[in-house]
Design a protein around this nucleic acid. Structure first.
Lengths: 336, 336
DNA sequence: GTGAAAGCGCTAACAC
DNA sequence: GTGTTAGCGCTTTCAC
């Protein structure tokens, strides 16, 4: 293994000079820098990560905790993860992958052992059991999602409340007066996942403002459940003309079920989805949707963390504004 | 930060004794062990990962390189990743997440800097550009998937050849004489992804043996492409009575398209899928399938790596036998 | 602008 | 069965 002293000898300088060339923490003459860099590439030198972490008390590694639960859309999790890794690399950091399963003890383990400098936690519940741990850890963290109490934390996510409002606003603007929200599976609500509740709040609040008749319906992530729910919905609300679907796996099934029930989309019934853009674009009938900006959230989380590691102040809450794209699944309500 | 010398002082022993209690690398009296362990938990001591890596030249971290390409089924990638992380943790290791994007240079970076002890590489191509790097690296690696030339490598995967054979064998056993394979998107074949070719080989070889008329058809991962392909298939092979589908995203669309074309499944047409069991089970019509054993492959990869790190010899190739589960999508061919 | 040297916290040889 | 101690390879003060 080639070490910093080998490089120093080869370049005819001291080890500290090599270190400073690498870190840029003090000025180096152009001539010296060049010689050192030539030696580095000639010898194929790579600083030993452990030695560096020990001496500098920085590992340049971030922890990313991914969820493993039912009711969350896996591809979105991967998008987050890839975005986090890519952004971290741009900041010269690596990413350690942890699963939810490790719990708060796992967070303490990687933080206290100095394996990681900072943590990103996905799929945060309203009263997440990991929050006390995150607050007492001496390392910065960023949550993707919002717990009930954000005191002392840094959170980032799509503004789901605004997303719910935007969906309802779009339908209301098209003249729809009776609409429904087909939401996440019941367990997502039961365990108090912020995004589901917040979407509902925004949806209902906007319905109140617009004088729209609105109802909310959790839905299991199966086609059967979707069909049953659509039937019930049409039964209970025969004059329904619009729905918002916040449940990726059943998007297709919902549209199909309405069609099977004799409702043309969008002529008789408008559908707005809250889902990743690719899903909405590539649906059989391209869907009007509010995007889940996984890439931006992941990138934003890393950038907040980098700022915190640099000792900068960052906002406690970062809410990304919803972006609604009108596609083929919504149309003005038939004159009634 | 509490360090090993703090624990030693607190327990009235030397630092090395604490170290040996932790590593179990020499025998310790019961009495001493207890005192040390009490001190550890009382003080909340965690060994510093960097210091440990520096002194022992073991980081206890594995690299996992995940694919980012089109034509691969994202949930399966997540299953691999979770299985790798879970198994690694059982062996007291953590997992560093790398993306394909980093290329072979990324592999060298984490290996040469001693950030990781070993590497797992997913989605290996037949002539993968990272192979030369992996061969020269001084750290062990395991590939998920098989390149054309496995000399000097350790590989593990489902035995796709046997899977192709099993699917055809199942259909042939039911009396089907004209069958098709609906495969991965064309780009998967073009870039020489081993699993797609191997499935095809097994499928065709078994067809030869059973005297079955078989054809192979790559298919884009969209419902439209699936519909078009099914129409063409029925046009060119009007007496087709069985298909194997090795393309997760279009499973549903394929079944629907056959039904739309007036073929009842399984009465007129049998369908065998190669896909994760959950997908086959939860399809609208539960599908006879050969499982993609993501969990076993991930676990196996980590265990091979642990053996290699322990200096044990491991088989160069590990092929997991296919497991076919008959469900509602296959039936005997109508007497013809 | 550069060098010398003191650690960073741990492991493992060596000694008893 | 336990203690002493010399590194592991780097960063960073202190000195010039």
């Amino acid at each position: 293994m080639v070490k910093i002293s080998d490089v120093a000898r080869h370049a005819g300088v001291s080890p500290s000079t090599v270190s400073y060339v690498l870190s840029g923490k003090r000025s180096i003459s152009e001539e010296t820098r060049r010689r050192v860099q030539d030696s580095i590439s000639e010898l194929g030198y790579r600083p030993h990560a452990g030695a560096r972490a020990l001496a500098s008390s920085r590992s340049n590694v971030l922890a990313l905790v991914v969820p493993l639960r039912t009711g969350i859309h896996v591809p979105v999790v991967m998008q987050f993860a890839v975005s986090v890794v890519t952004t971290a690399r741009r900041h010269d950091h690596d990413v350690l992958l942890l699963t939810q399963e490790e719990g708060d003890e796992g967070l303490r383990r990687v933080a206290d052992s100095a394996l990681v400098d900072a943590l990103i936690v996905m799929d945060v519940q309203l009263r997440d059991e990991r929050l006390p741990m995150l607050r007492t850890l001496d390392r910065p963290s960023v949550l993707i999602g919002f717990p009930a109490e954000t005191e002392g934390l840094t959170c980032i996510d799509l503004d789901f409340r605004a997303a719910g409002e935007a969906c309802l606003g779009h339908l209301a603007g098209l003249g729809h007066r009776v609409v429904g929200l087909i939401g996440s599976p019941p367990e997502v609500y039961e365990r108090g996942t912020g995004f589901a509740e917040r979407t509902t709040e925004g949806f209902l609040a906007a319905a109140g403002e617009h004088g729209v008749d609105a109802s909310v319906h959790p839905c299991e992530a199966t086609a059967d459940a979707a069909r049953a729910l659509v039937e019930r919905l049409l039964d209970e609300h025969p004059d329904l003309t619009g729905v918002v679907v916040h449940n990726e796996p059943v998007l297709d099934a919902v549209v199909k079920a309405f069609q099977a029930a004799g409702r043309r989309v969008p002529e008789d019934l408008s559908v707005v989805a809250i889902c990743p853009d690719e899903l909405a674009e590539h649906a059989e009938l391209p869907l009007t949707s509010v995007a889940i900006p996984a890439e931006e959230v992941g990138r934003g989380a890393v950038e907040l963390l980098m700022d915190k590691l640099d000792g900068k102040d960052v906002p406690a809450a970062t809410l990304l504004p919803p972006r609604l794209t009108a596609r083929a699944s919504t149309a003005p309500a038939a004159a009634g």
